[in-house]
Write a protein that binds this DNA or RNA. Structure first.
Lengths: 233, 233
DNA sequence: GTGACAAATAAGTCTGACTTTTTGGCTCGG
DNA sequence: CCGAGCCAAAAAGTCAGACTTATTTGTCAC
């Protein structure tokens, strides 16, 4: 799913990125390029490229005569998929998962409403297909297959909204759903009520009923939030 | 407001970034690092750093023996503030402004609801202060001062929501509001109804009335959307 | 046609020397 | 005692050149 370090600078990022986002270096900490290059056993050119990328994510700031300063959390580009992955892999995963779920609950209902207006016939049929897939895998501990269809379903809704900002949140939703299935406790089969809501949502979008699509999605995301509250009150 | 190119690689980005996001190089176009380095009269090291940054924004992809390939719009990190600025400065500014306004209309109502629950007394007083500032500057073509308070107001709401993902959209909202005032036609004073809504919203948050705060914000963002429809139907 | 092998190509990497900016301290004069 | 201004050190920034490596493409034999 993610893109593991391509090239040497990528490997450096795979180590430094998670370390910084995990808070291993408190804000204001100063790193030196040469020292980092030695530590990771790469040339300064490679280390400089890595620092530039971290800088573009606003994780660090490089200043002459000072060094590479770690920036406070408030400055980070928290929408960068790479940063999201790093943070989800770290210690504050639960906190991160909650933030993203709240984001979902704001975005997806509006996206569903727009999808009901703009979805193409092809997108509608794909949607019903995925909903069917969810129904078929909702029993008998077929969590992996269920997840697959669930992710695809939400991706289609976001894309069908016609808004590029919404569409790009497909990866975020995928991370949240995947995280919920894999890392949180989910022994039991998915909630039957949720499955029904997805089927109804597909229908609402197909019929162009924007208000109903929005309301149904609010119920779905409300369920996701409630789930979090049960697990980590 | 933005951060103009620090260092040589920054200057290169200030030219290449807008060019790519403006579509000057169609998706799939191949650039060569050496050629770019010559064109911008910088060393390859500097150009490589610039390419790494563009790569981290998913604007381009660098592959051996092939070159630097421009990626399709669908791959771009459209939430990267830098990318947003580049696109707002380019030709599809209207389209971009609409996408962001729709995003606002999804996020801000939920954020306002959360703010009503979580805002500190200090944030509440700041909010009323800003609302007052908006009222005072709502007449007599004091657009610049009005904008200043408007931006601050929405920033506080997003921050007070307590959700870091929402808080980071403060910059986006600032860009949208600023863009509306500066580049779109706004000879007239701001809509008095909008001003009233902001005052009421500050009150609702202060009183902890989440439902009312959310509803009022929906009215505000609906107004912003309507404004766009009038200007570019 | 297909398989393997060889050549060309552009990114990737490393090294060392040099430049530029910033900061912190030091001196000197008030 | 304190401030202005100057100097030196430190670290990032820049450049040039040589070398490595992966990938593609083309060719040739089978």
């Amino acid at each position: 799913m993610s893109t593991p370090g391509r090239g040497l600078h990528g490997h450096v990022l795979d180590t430094l990125g998670p370390a910084i986002t995990a808070g291993a270096y408190p804000p204001g900490s100063v790193l030196r390029t040469d020292e980092l290059a030695q530590r990771f056993e790469v040339s300064r050119s490679v280390m400089r490229e890595a620092v530039r990328v971290l800088e573009s994510m606003h994780l660090v700031e490089s200043r002459r005569r000072v060094g590479v300063t770690v920036l406070p959390k408030a400055a980070w580009n928290v929408y960068d998929p790479q940063v999201i992955r790093w943070r989800l892999a770290g210690a504050d995963r639960p906190h991160q998962l909650r933030s993203l779920t709240v984001l979902r609950s704001a975005i997806e209902p509006v996206a569903a409403g727009l999808a009901a207006r703009h979805a193409t016939p092809e997108q509608c049929s794909q949607l019903t297909e995925r909903a069917l897939g969810m129904v078929e895998n909702s029993r008998g501990h077929r969590l992996e297959q269920y997840l697959f269809h669930d992710v695809a379903f939400h991706r289609i809704v976001l894309t069908a909204s016609g808004n590029e900002m919404f569409a790009r949140l497909g990866d975020v939703v995928a991370e949240v759903l995947t995280g919920r299935t894999h890392h949180e406790v989910m022994f039991a089969d998915p909630d039957p009520a949720a499955v029904t809501l997805h089927v109804e949502l597909a229908a609402a979008i197909r019929e162009g009923d924007a208000a109903r699509a929005e309301a149904l999605t609010r119920e779905i995301t409300a369920g996701a939030l409630q789930e979090l509250d049960i697990l980590a009150p």
